[in-house]
C-alpha cells in the first residue's frame, strides 16, 4: 500500500474513533493500535489467570462453607474473564498458544499485585476489596474502549468484578467487627496490600510512556494518576467506616480540592516487582508453566481422540 493510502486510512480510522464508532475485528486499523491492544488485552488476560493463584491458595482453608463457595465462584469468574480476554486477543490475530508461552517465558507481564503472597484469610478480603476494587476503576472506562470486542468483554467482566469487590469488603467488615485477633488479621492484610494496590494504576503520568497515544485512540480514558486518585477517594472512607487504618501516615483530606492526598509511593519496589523480583513472581509463573506442561498429555489425547472420532465417522 502506498504511503498516501495509509495516511488516508489512518485519518478515517481516527475520525471513527473521534466519533465514538467502535472498531471491529475486520476493520482496518494501524499496526500500532493492533499491537497496543494485543499487549494490553493479553496482559489483562494473564492477570486474570495468574490472579487465580493467590486466591486459589485459600480455597481449601476457607473458614466456612459459605465463604468457600463464594471464593470458588469468584475464582471461577476470574478464569472466565481470562478466557474471554484471550478470545479478544485472537480477534486481533494473536495466537493463544503463543500469548500464553510469552507469559511463561517472562516476555509478557501481568498485574504485579499478584506477585505478593496471600498469608492469611484476611487477604481474601483485602484482595477482593482493594485489588478487585482497583480493577473496577481501571475497567469501567474500558467498557467504552474503542475496540468493540474488548469493550463488550469489559461490560460483562465489570458486573462480576463489583460482586468480587463487595464480597472482599464484606470479609473485611466481618473481621474488623470480630475478635481482636480477627481485627488484627484484617489490619495486617490492609497494611500489606494497600501500597501494592495503589501501584496497580501504574507509574505516575509523567513516567507513563503509552498514556497519550492510548488516550487518543480511546483505549484509555483517564490517566493513571486520575484513576489512582479516584480509587483512594472511594476507598479511604470505606476503611474508616469499618475502623481500619490506611497505612499511610501522610494521608490527609484536602478540603479545598475534595480529594485525599497520599504519601510518596515506593516506585523502586514497583519496578523491582515488574522486573521479576517480587516475593512470588517465580512461584506464579512456575505454577502456570507447570500446569501447562502437566496438561500436555491431556491436550494431546483430546486432539487425538477428536481426530479418531472424525475418521470413524467418515468411515461409517
Amino acid at each position: 500500500m502506498k504511503e498516501q493510502d495509509i495516511a488516508i486510512l489512518e485519518q478515517k480510522f481516527q475520525e471513527k474513533i473521534d466519533n465514538d464508532i467502535k472498531i471491529e475485528p475486520n476493520d482496518w486499523m494501524p499496526d500500532a493500535y493492533r499491537n497496543t491492544l494485543i499487549r494490553q488485552i493479553s496482559q489483562h488476560a494473564h492477570s486474570e489467570i495468574v490472579g487465580m493463584l493467590p486466591e486459589g491458595n485459600w480455597i481449601t482453608r476457607a473458614p466456612n462453607l459459605r465463604r468457600k463457595a463464594v471464593l470458588l465462584a469468584k475464582v471461577q469468574d476470574e478464569a472466565g474473564h481470562g478466557l474471554y480476554l484471550y478470545s479478544a486477543t485472537e480477534t486481533l490475530g494473536a495466537d493463544r498458544e503463543q500469548t500464553i508461552d510469552d507469559l511463561h517465558s517472562g516476555v509478557a507481564k501481568y498485574s504485579s499485585i499478584f506477585n505478593y503472597p496471600t498469608l492469611s484469610w484476611a487477604d481474601m478480603g483485602a484482595v477482593g476489596w482493594l485489588v478487585d476494587g482497583a480493577a473496577i476503576m481501571n475497567q469501567v472506562p474500558l467498557c467504552r474502549c474503542s475496540y468493540g470486542p474488548y469493550a463488550r468483554a469489559m461490560v460483562r467482566v465489570c458486573k462480576e468484578e463489583s460482586f468480587h469487590q463487595r464480597q472482599g469488603f464484606e470479609i473485611m467488615m466481618k473481621l474488623a467487627a470480630g475478635t481482636p485477633e480477627q481485627k488484627e488479621m484484617a489490619q495486617d492484610a490492609l497494611n500489606r496490600f494497600w501500597w501494592p494496590a495503589i501501584m496497580m494504576f501504574g507509574p505516575n503520568d509523567a513516567e507513563s510512556k503509552h498514556t497519550a497515544q492510548s488516550m487518543k485512540w480511546k483505549i484509555k480514558r483517564h490517566t493513571n494518576d486520575e484513576l489512582r486518585q479516584q480509587f483512594i477517594d472511594v476507598t479511604v472512607p470505606q476503611a474508616e467506616l469499618i475502623g481500619l487504618t490506611i497505612p499511610d501516615p501522610l494521608l490527609k483530606f484536602n478540603e479545598a480540592t475534595g480529594h485525599y492526598e497520599h504519601g510518596p509511593i515506593d516506585w523502586d519496589e514497583f519496578w523491582e516487582v515488574v522486573k521479576g523480583n517480587g516475593p512470588c513472581n517465580k512461584d506464579r509463573v512456575d505454577a502456570r508453566r507447570k500446569a501447562k506442561e502437566n496438561g500436555l498429555w491431556v491436550r494431546q489425547a483430546a486432539l487425538a481422540h477428536a481426530e479418531k472420532k472424525k475418521l470413524r465417522k467418515q468411515a461409517s
Binding site: I49, Q76, N294
Partner: peptide, 26 residues
C-alpha cells in the same frame, strides 16, 4: 476438586472443575 483451581490442564477445565467443586460444596 478445588485443589485443582488454577492448575488445570486447560483453562476450560479449570473452570469446569471449579464449577463442579462449587456444586459439591453447595
Amino acid at each position: 476438586l478445588s485443589e485443582w483451581c488454577g492448575h488445570g490442564p486447560i483453562l476450560e477445565e479449570d473452570i469446569a472443575m471449579t464449577n463442579i467443586s462449587l456444586d459439591f460444596i453447595g
